[in-house]
Computed example of a mutant assay.
Amino acid sequence: MPPPSIRTIKDCRLEDADRTWDAIRVPRSVGLDALAILGGRSGALLEDPLSAALFWFIPPEDAAEWDVAGTRVLDEDAHLPIPSDGRTHGPGPHWRVRPVAEAWTTEAAALQAALEDAASPCLGVGR
Protein backbone atom coordinates (compact mmCIF):
# COMPACT_ATOMS: atom_id res chain seq x y z
CA MET A 1 0.00 0.00 0.00
CA PRO A 2 1.45 3.43 -0.93
CA PRO A 3 2.15 5.88 1.88
CA PRO A 4 -0.58 8.43 2.59
CA SER A 5 -0.15 11.80 0.95
CA ILE A 6 -1.46 15.20 1.84
CA ARG A 7 -3.89 16.53 -0.70
CA THR A 8 -3.42 20.03 -1.90
CA ILE A 9 -4.61 22.18 -4.77
CA LYS A 10 -4.02 20.87 -8.29
CA ASP A 11 -0.49 21.48 -9.58
CA CYS A 12 0.87 22.08 -6.05
CA ARG A 13 3.06 20.01 -3.76
CA LEU A 14 3.36 20.48 -0.02
CA GLU A 15 6.90 21.49 1.03
CA ASP A 16 8.44 21.90 4.46
CA ALA A 17 9.85 25.30 5.29
CA ASP A 18 13.38 25.47 6.70
CA ARG A 19 15.13 23.11 4.32
CA THR A 20 16.98 25.00 1.58
CA TRP A 21 15.03 28.18 2.31
CA ASP A 22 12.98 29.90 4.94
CA ALA A 23 9.74 31.54 3.93
CA ILE A 24 8.69 35.01 5.02
CA ARG A 25 4.92 35.57 5.18
CA VAL A 26 3.96 39.13 4.25
CA PRO A 27 0.49 40.70 4.01
CA ARG A 28 -0.38 41.16 0.33
CA SER A 29 -1.10 44.89 0.80
CA VAL A 30 2.48 45.64 1.90
CA GLY A 31 4.07 42.91 -0.18
CA LEU A 32 2.96 44.29 -3.53
CA ASP A 33 4.56 47.65 -2.74
CA ALA A 34 7.72 45.86 -1.57
CA LEU A 35 7.81 43.89 -4.82
CA ALA A 36 7.67 47.15 -6.80
CA ILE A 37 10.57 48.48 -4.73
CA LEU A 38 12.64 45.29 -5.15
CA GLY A 39 12.04 44.97 -8.88
CA GLY A 40 14.53 42.54 -10.42
CA ARG A 41 16.19 41.88 -7.05
CA SER A 42 13.23 39.71 -6.00
CA GLY A 43 13.65 35.98 -6.03
CA ALA A 44 10.67 33.65 -6.26
CA LEU A 45 7.46 35.04 -4.79
CA LEU A 46 4.46 32.88 -3.94
CA GLU A 47 0.98 34.39 -3.67
CA ASP A 48 -1.78 32.68 -1.69
CA PRO A 49 -5.08 34.47 -2.37
CA LEU A 50 -6.89 32.51 0.35
CA SER A 51 -4.70 33.96 3.11
CA ALA A 52 -4.13 37.32 1.32
CA ALA A 53 -0.41 36.75 1.79
CA LEU A 54 2.79 36.71 -0.22
CA PHE A 55 5.72 34.45 0.62
CA TRP A 56 9.33 35.33 -0.14
CA PHE A 57 12.14 32.80 0.29
CA ILE A 58 15.40 33.74 1.99
CA PRO A 59 18.51 31.70 2.80
CA PRO A 60 17.89 29.71 6.01
CA GLU A 61 20.81 31.25 7.87
CA ASP A 62 19.26 34.73 7.49
CA ALA A 63 16.00 33.88 9.25
CA ALA A 64 17.48 33.96 12.75
CA GLU A 65 18.07 37.71 12.41
CA TRP A 66 14.69 38.47 10.81
CA ASP A 67 12.73 41.16 12.64
CA VAL A 68 10.24 43.02 10.46
CA ALA A 69 6.91 44.10 11.95
CA GLY A 70 3.85 42.52 10.37
CA THR A 71 5.79 39.63 8.82
CA ARG A 72 6.45 36.11 10.02
CA VAL A 73 9.18 33.57 9.39
CA LEU A 74 7.76 30.10 8.79
CA ASP A 75 9.58 27.63 11.02
CA GLU A 76 10.41 23.99 10.41
CA ASP A 77 6.90 22.90 11.41
CA ALA A 78 5.28 24.97 8.66
CA HIS A 79 4.36 23.75 5.20
CA LEU A 80 3.67 25.67 2.01
CA PRO A 81 1.75 24.58 -1.07
CA ILE A 82 4.36 25.05 -3.81
CA PRO A 83 2.80 25.35 -7.27
CA SER A 84 4.33 24.02 -10.46
CA ASP A 85 6.75 26.45 -12.09
CA GLY A 86 4.21 27.37 -14.76
CA ARG A 87 1.36 28.24 -12.39
CA THR A 88 1.26 32.04 -12.51
CA HIS A 89 -2.48 32.57 -11.94
CA GLY A 90 -5.08 31.30 -9.50
CA PRO A 91 -7.30 29.95 -8.36
CA GLY A 92 -5.19 29.04 -5.38
CA PRO A 93 -1.49 29.50 -4.73
CA HIS A 94 0.54 30.71 -7.70
CA TRP A 95 3.80 32.43 -8.55
CA ARG A 96 3.88 36.22 -8.58
CA VAL A 97 7.56 35.82 -9.52
CA ARG A 98 8.44 32.41 -10.92
CA PRO A 99 11.37 30.56 -9.38
CA VAL A 100 14.55 30.36 -11.37
CA ALA A 101 17.31 27.96 -10.34
CA GLU A 102 19.81 30.69 -9.59
CA ALA A 103 17.32 33.16 -8.08
CA TRP A 104 14.96 31.20 -5.80
CA THR A 105 15.85 33.23 -2.73
CA THR A 106 15.82 36.97 -2.15
CA GLU A 107 18.62 38.69 -0.26
CA ALA A 108 17.23 39.14 3.25
CA ALA A 109 18.66 42.66 3.76
CA ALA A 110 17.16 43.89 0.48
CA LEU A 111 13.79 42.34 1.31
CA GLN A 112 13.80 43.84 4.79
CA ALA A 113 14.61 47.31 3.44
CA ALA A 114 11.90 47.05 0.78
CA LEU A 115 9.30 45.91 3.33
CA GLU A 116 10.20 48.72 5.71
CA ASP A 117 9.95 51.26 2.87
CA ALA A 118 6.65 49.76 1.71
CA ALA A 119 5.19 49.97 5.22
CA SER A 120 6.38 53.55 5.67
CA PRO A 121 3.56 56.11 5.98
CA CYS A 122 5.49 58.28 3.50
CA LEU A 123 5.12 55.77 0.67
CA GLY A 124 2.97 57.22 -2.03
CA VAL A 125 3.50 60.86 -0.97
CA GLY A 126 4.10 62.82 -4.13
CA ARG A 127 2.93 60.08 -6.48
Rank of each mutant, 00 (worst) to 15 (best):
L46Q: 00
L46A: 01
E76H: 09
F57R: 12
P4Y: 02
G39L: 05
F55L: 11
F57P: 01
A78W: 07
E76M: 10
T20K: 12
R7I: 12
L74V: 07
W66R: 04
A44H: 02
R41L: 09
G43M: 09
A64C: 07
P59H: 13
T8Y: 00
W66I: 07
S29A: 15
T71I: 06
A52H: 12
S51P: 03
D18N: 06
V26M: 00
R25M: 10
F57M: 14
A69T: 12
G31T: 02
R25Y: 01
E65L: 08
A44Q: 01
A52M: 08
P60G: 09
S5Q: 15
D75G: 14
E47W: 00
L50G: 02
G70W: 13
I58H: 13
E76K: 06
A64D: 15
D75T: 11
P60C: 10
P4H: 05
L74T: 04
P3F: 08
R72F: 03
P49L: 02
D33W: 03
F55P: 00
E15L: 11
S5P: 04
S29N: 10
P2F: 06
T20D: 14
D67S: 14
L45T: 10
L38I: 07
I37D: 03
L32I: 14
F57C: 04
D18M: 11
D33T: 15
R25I: 08
G70Q: 10
L45S: 00
E47S: 05
P4A: 11
V68H: 05
